[in-house]
């Protein structure tokens, strides 16, 4: 059995373990609630994490499998085009789900490392589950490659995190502006004595 096939076989267990790890970054009471309710509107946090972990894993699995088939039959054009095809649709979906989760974690009292760190937990989940199945890690090369992919996604998550935090400060500024911008603009237009401007309530 190849590394990719092994991953596919244990996919559900790995994702479940990974999701548990990721949820455990919340306090016990909350993670239980996030885990239990499956309703995307009543429980957006748990839902987003569930979907994101599953999609990220699927994407990585697809990459691993196509990579393996590439190296096995590097001459075959057919399999190559096949691989690029499946890669083209998955990442877009994955980025979107990753973004959803990081966006939430960016406003949930986590430090930066805590907010994106859950991604790295996948490495651990894979090792634990593979060890349980085959006894030892027989695929050092594949594992390293897999890890690099995980790292890449973590980097991406970090970019999203920073973007969200910047957005946050932007929103703060915008909101304060919206409170008075219109009046100030009108006052400027008319040259009204600034004393008459409504006092800012800060």
């Amino acid at each position: 059995m190849t590394f990719g096939e092994l991953l596919r076989e244990n996919g559900d267990a790995i994702v479940r373990r990974w999701l548990d790890d990721a949820l455990s970054t919340y306090s016990k009471d909350s993670s239980a609630a996030f885990k239990r309710r499956k309703d995307p509107f009543g429980n957006p946090v748990g839902h987003a994490l569930r979907v994101a972990t599953a999609t990220i894993f699927e994407t990585l699995l697809a990459e691993t499998l196509s990579n393996a088939s590439e190296s096995n039959a590097s001459e075959s054009n057919a399999s190559e085009s096949n691989a690029t095809e499946s890669n083209a649709t998955e990442p877009a979906k994955m980025h979107e789900h990753l973004r959803e989760v990081v966006k939430m974690r960016a406003v949930q009292q986590f430090s930066a490392s805590q907010a994106v760190g859950f991604i790295f937990r996948l490495k651990q989940a894979v090792r634990t589950k593979l060890e349980a199945t085959v006894g030892d890690s027989r695929f050092p090369a594949e594992l390293v490659q897999f890890d690099q992919r995980v790292d890449r996604i973590a980097m991406e998550a970090f970019d999203i995190y920073v973007e969200c935090r910047e957005r946050l400060s932007e929103l703060r500024i915008n909101e304060v502006k919206r409170r008075v911008a219109w009046v100030v603009h009108k006052m400027d237009q008319r040259g009204v004595d600034p004393e008459l401007a409504p006092a800012d309530s800060e």
């Binding site: 309710r37 499956k38 309703d39 995307p40 509107f41 009543g42 979907v51």
Partner: peptide, 11 residues
């Protein structure tokens, strides 16, 4: 509730 766009389940 409609879960994952398709399935109808009860909480």
């Amino acid at each position: 509730e409609v879960i994952d766009q398709r399935r109808l389940v009860y909480t």
